[in-house]
Design a protein around this nucleic acid. Structure first.
Length: 421
RNA sequence: GUGGCCUUAGCUCAACCGGCAGAGCAUCGGAUUGUGGUUCCGAAGGUUACGGGUUCGACCCCCGUAGGCCACCCCA
């Protein structure tokens, strides 16, 4: 017996019973993408590692310790270390935007994608090394209206899935004009309380002071006394944030201003937001997040173009739906086609006819007795059975409702209407 | 990357102090040749995660590895 091989750490298989919830989540995401006029884009699952290092920032966790390196079979060590699986979608999409000269397209450009992301992190419930995100990006729109529109879109997504208790956390972390002063204010403040910081935070204070605010070990009074980014915004950033918040109020979108929300990636400017679910204080409460990245396109070599987007974690969304026991819409009826003896030609012929009429058909391929075939049909989730007998000579079959047991002879042409009626 | 708990049949779990690995559910087959769900009978399913060690003897004790869960770090 060969040794058994198991799935890589931090990955899992989606099994047939997981299908309906994922179908639901993906179909709502796709339908909202359509209704919000996003166009589909696909970019590679791996890129040059340098793209992520430059785009997300060397000091971001995703680059510093979660980069999932891949190597080609040939080439120098240098070449083989040059690739990484994407930890998030934005850098690749912006790369594609620049590379394909998309700035000449009529803007603003609204792009969307659903696909797997990879982070070499320690696995935990709701945290995987391969996970799936629904991503939307808008390039070429600097105004606050699009910020509000995206936050509203995220909230609508959860709402349409039946997830309650999702709150949008919103903050502004300023831009190139005002962030340096805010950084300095944080350095001054936390520098005066070095003894109360963790080692990690002391290190962050030098590399990226904003992220000290992320530290959950920070004492409450230290947090309350810390400088707030919203108090250090330049006029443009303050006006922008005001605009976003006013629009959210006008739209009735549930949100809170969260002064500790700074986001882990370096490319964000101004608006940062996160969708958090209640009841997960601390842990994996972030179902999705995003923000504005007005400097990223230029940073990656394109002409200056404002951008904003979000990524929503579909794994955590599915998990939250299971926890809250959200009901899934009932699926289309499944019809089994059963018969007796070796009448498979009739079974398959009628199955094809019914499929052409749009029904989901599961023909029984066995020669087992009818009772066994019906039993297996029920176990497979069929709600109707088409039983083929002598009447097939007149293009008639017995149509049985497996829930009620009712049965009657119906012309093959009328089966679909009988079931759907 | 740090720490704690855990791993026995597909699933949920038993197995006394170290003495022949079991049950329920699920699966498959059968209960006088055309109708399922209940019931009854039966079958199959295991290198006890993997590798070493101690012992006459290891699911059980020791070491290592892998994986899972939880809490950190951080995030989706």
């Amino acid at each position: 017996m060969p040794r058994q091989i198991s799935a890589p750490r931090g990955t899992r298989d989606l099994l047939p019973e997981d299908g309906p919830a994922w179908e639901r989540v993906e179909s709502v995401a796709r339908d909202l993408s359509r209704r919000y006029a996003f166009e589909r884009i696909e970019v590679p699952l791996f890129e040059r590692a340098e793209l992520f290092a430059r785009g997300l920032g060397e000091s971001s966790d995703a680059v510093e310790k979660e980069m999932f390196r891949v190597s080609g079979a040939r080439g120098s060590d240098e070449e083989r270390a040059a690739w990484a699986l994407r930890p998030e979608p934005t850098a690749g999409i912006v790369r594609s935007f620049i590379e394909n000269g998309m700035h000449v397209r009529p803007g603003p450009l609204r792009l969307t994608m659903i696909g797997p992301m990879f982070r070499y992190d320690r696995p935990q419930a709701g945290r995987y090394r391969q996970f799936t995100q629904w991503d939307v990006e808008v390039l070429g729109d600097a105004g606050p209206a699009v910020d509000a529109e995206l936050i509203e879109l995220g909230q609508r997504f959860y709402g349409e899935l039946g997830l309650t208790d999702v709150v949008a956390h919103v903050n502004s972390i300023g831009d190139a004009a005002c962030r340096p002063a805010y950084r300095q204010a944080l350095v001054d403040y936390f520098g005066a309380h070095l003894d109360r910081l963790t080692d990690d935070s002391r290190r962050r204070l030098e590399i990226n002071p904003l992220r000290v605010l992320d530290d959950k070990h920070l004492a409450g009074d230290l947090v309350d006394g810390a400088p707030r980014s919203t108090d250090h915004l330049c006029d443009e950033c303050r006006t922008h944030l005001r605009g976003v918040l006013d629009l959210l109020d006008a739209l009735g979108v549930r949100h809170v201003v969260d002064h500790r929300l700074v986001r882990g990636l370096d490319y964000y400017t101004r608006t940062a937001f996160e969708f958090a679910i209640a009841g997960h204080e601390g842990q994996q409460q972030a179902l999705g997040g995003g923000g504005r990245y007005d400097g990223l396109v230029e940073l990656l070599g394109g002409r200056a173009t404002p951008g904003i987007g979000f990524g929503i974690g579909l794994d955590r969304t599915v998990l939250a739906m299971a926890e809250q026991e959200v009901a899934l819409p009932s699926s289309a009826p499944l019809v089994a086609v059963v018969g007796s003896g070796d009448d498979h030609a009739d079974r398959l012929r009628i199955a094809a006819t019914l499929r052409a009429a749009g029904l989901a058909i599961r023909p029984d391929g066995s020669t087992r007795k009818l009772g066994k075939q019906l039993e297996s049909a029920v176990k497979a989730g069929a709600t109707w059975a088409v039983i083929i007998g002598a009447e097939v000579a007149d293009e008639q079959v017995a149509l049985k409702n497996l829930a009620t047991g009712e049965q009657s002879n119906v012309a093959v042409d009328l089966v679909a209407a009988s079931i759907n009626g």
